[in-house]
Every structure is written in structure tokens, then in C-alpha cells.
Design a protein around this nucleic acid. Sequence first.
DNA 1: GTAGGGCTTCCCATCATGGGAAGGTCAAGG
DNA 2: CCTTGACCTTCCCATGATGGGAAGCCCTAC
Lengths: 145, 145
Amino acid sequence: MNIGQAAEASGVSAKMIRYYEQIGLIRPSARSDNNYRVYGEDEVHVLRFIKRARSLGFSLEETERLLALWQDRSRESASVKAVAVQHIADLKRRIAEMEGMVKTLSHLAHCCGGDGRPDCPILEDLAGHVPPPIPAASRSRRRAP
Amino acid sequence: MNIGQAAEASGVSAKMIRYYEQIGLIRPSARSDNNYRVYGEDEVHVLRFIKRARSLGFSLEETERLLALWQDRSRESASVKAVAVQHIADLKRRIAEMEGMVKTLSHLAHCCGGDGRPDCPILEDLAGHVPPPIPAASRSRRRAP
DNA sequence: GTAGGGCTTCCCATCATGGGAAGGTCAAGG
DNA sequence: CCTTGACCTTCCCATGATGGGAAGCCCTAC
């Protein structure tokens, strides 16, 4: 199987397969006489593993660890679980962060007329509730000094 | 005010201030005789605006648009709201994506013993529910004969 | 006069991915 | 036999936003 077919079969682009090889995530494939990379079912299997791990948000570094554990028949499932649990915590943290943004923004957008007038609570928030500088004019304050 | 003080006052690192200037997000500051960048309250204000926008997850490109709207007194709040609404949708999409990952992973982690034994549903999922290949170099190489 | 801290520019690294050029290889069809 | 087109190879560059660090200039304090 050439790299194109392996890409097709695994869902990992040929570009990425070469990259994974380059960074040592996967081992260099065999080469045919014409110097083409040659893959078998095992390699495709590994690529699918990587693809799946990536789709679950694992970094390539985490993926590498998982790959190593997968191929270590004497692994302890606790090691795998630790990687997963850490990743879950990380995802949850990022989700919470973004939810905070959504909450703030939703409130601001709700308060914004969204019409033809210039008044906009969104900009007021970004500006720290004080008026814009650059055009250099109108020092009207919306809040008590 | 030198760049260090402006960084301090705005919460944007000096490194980033220079970068923002370089990519045209902010205009080149004035320079003092010794070629140091010089900032005033207005510039710090702009930097704080950027900082706040970034903290709400807006990209630098979106931030640039918001900045332009902020400084355009004849803007329509609808334009601002459009940027915000789009960003909210984007955040929600990413959150949903990550929540999917968390859901899957939590289930798998829950099912994983996390003990000293090698059996692990997490790896089984990643492997597509089939056993691992390539435990070692003892694997058949498909080199051209 | 020297030590330090701040400033300047320039280059590099990150993370994962894609784009594209320049050139080799192969199979099909004229 | 030769062309065409679809592969493959390596190499370099770009992304987005940020940080790290080197080499060298400037200013102030001692």
C-alpha cells in the first residue's frame, strides 16, 4: 500500500503521515524499490489509532504516550486512565473558560440594540466603560466619576 | 510612557505590543529621541481594549474589526453585534465539540479499571475495538525482496 | 567608569496542519 | 516509443498568538 492508500484507509492525510514519521510518532515505513513508502494493515491500524486519539482531542504528545501503552502488553490500565483523566480535566477547564466568554458575550449581545444606532454595550464593555480615544472628541461619561 | 510601563498599565506584554504594531493592529507609536516607543493614555486605552477582546476569545482579526468599529463614531451597533454573535456561535460550536469528547472519554474512563491490569476500554476504543499490532521489532517487515 | 535595567531589532520555537515547487516514477493510451 | 497524468519524493514556507533569547544601544545610580 502506498501512502495515498494508507491515507485513504486511515483518514490521516499523506502529509500528516510523513510528519508523524518525521517527529518519531510512527516508525519509518518500509520503502519499495522506487523509494515510495509502503504500508501494511498494521501501520494503517496505528494511523487509525492516532486519528481517533486526535479526534478525542489528545495532543500528539499524549497520543504518543497512549500509543506506547497500547503497544505495551504489560501496561497497567491505570496509566492509560491517568492520561485520559488528565485530558478530561483539561477539556473541562477549557470548556468552562469558553462558557464564561459565552455568558458574558451573550449578555452584552442581548443588551445591544443591533440596529442602526452607534450606541453599543459590547464596545462599552471592551472599552472598560469609558469612551474611545483615537477620534479624540466627546468626553461624555456614562458612569459617575 | 515607555513600552514597559504601557505593558504594565494595559496588561499586554511589551513583546505583544511590538507584535501588534508590526501586524498593523495598532499604529506605530511615537518615538523619543533615543528611539524608544512612547505611549500615552490613549494608546494604553487601546491596548486594554485589545486585551479585553482577547480575553473574551476574539481573534486578533475580530479584535481589529471591533477596534475599527469602536473608533468609528458613525458605526451601527448591528455591525458590532454581528461580530459578537458570530463569535458566540463559534464558541458554542467548539464547546459542543469538546463536550462530545468529554462525554466519550468520561464513559471510557468510567469503564476503565484504572488498576494494575492491562485491560483497558480506553485503548480498545482508540484501537477501534481490535487488538494492537507492532508490539516490537519482531514484526514482519514488508521490504521489497 | 561601570553595573544594572530597560529599550531596540532580529531570529527561533511552539502545535498541528496545509500549500506548493521541483523532480522522480509508473501505468495507460496514442 | 513518447506523452500525459497521477502518483510519489524532499524541501521550504505559512498559519495564530505568544514567548525566549541574543547582540547591542541608552540611561541612571553609585
